[in-house]
Amino acid sequence: MNRAALLVLADGRFPAGGHAHSGGAEEAVTAGRVRDVASLEAFCRGRLHTAGLVAAGLAAAAAAGYDPLLLEEAADARTAAPALRYTSRRLGRQLLRAARAAWPCAALDALATARPRGAHQPVVLGLAARCAGLTPLDAAHAATYESIGGPVTAAVRLLRLDPFDATAVLARLAPDMDHVAAEAADAAQRVQADGPAALPAASAPLLDITAEQHAVRGARLFAS
């Protein structure tokens, strides 16, 4: 157990490509649905309890040592939009590169060999956490934080929000993050017995629709 590794893994400066992605925030801003601190917070709450919860479940299960290739399948089944599957695999590939440099580990090497074009990001995140000596709950925390940390940073750039206000959004959602991470880690405990169907699958229709809108937009700052 090495708790400080969680700070390294969850740090926004961890070089795994996240800075170029807004987690759907750019499209929500373009559509006018996110325009201030309050709507950003509502966006983040929704994303946390859907995409964030799903990512946390997958990450926790991978951190618990469940077969990453079965989790890949589970991630596909939970990601209806091809733009989001594509983004997840690209980010997974970038994270795999960073994680292998940070925590060299046979399990990460094996996943890179099995999925040279990238595995789903939450699966890689969980496996990286495992290789860093972290627990499934730690991995779930990293995933939940990431699920809204990226959109908040993006919104600061897109809307010129006061960065203190934006950070306060994350702080206000911290209890929600704890709750989501715990729920995800609980579900991951049931995976060995019940299979990946035990993992959360919360969907967000607007995130699916807007991900495809964003993917064909010519002028945009963020990759997703």
């Binding site: 996110v34 967000a204 607007l206």
Partner: peptide, 29 residues
Amino acid sequence: RPLLEQQATFGPGAPGWDGPAVLADHRAI
């Protein structure tokens, strides 16, 4: 093999469901 797995929770007490990431003000899905 799993092909599609989706859950949703809407209505009072469900966090974020009517926000800009999930349904916004749409009420028919």
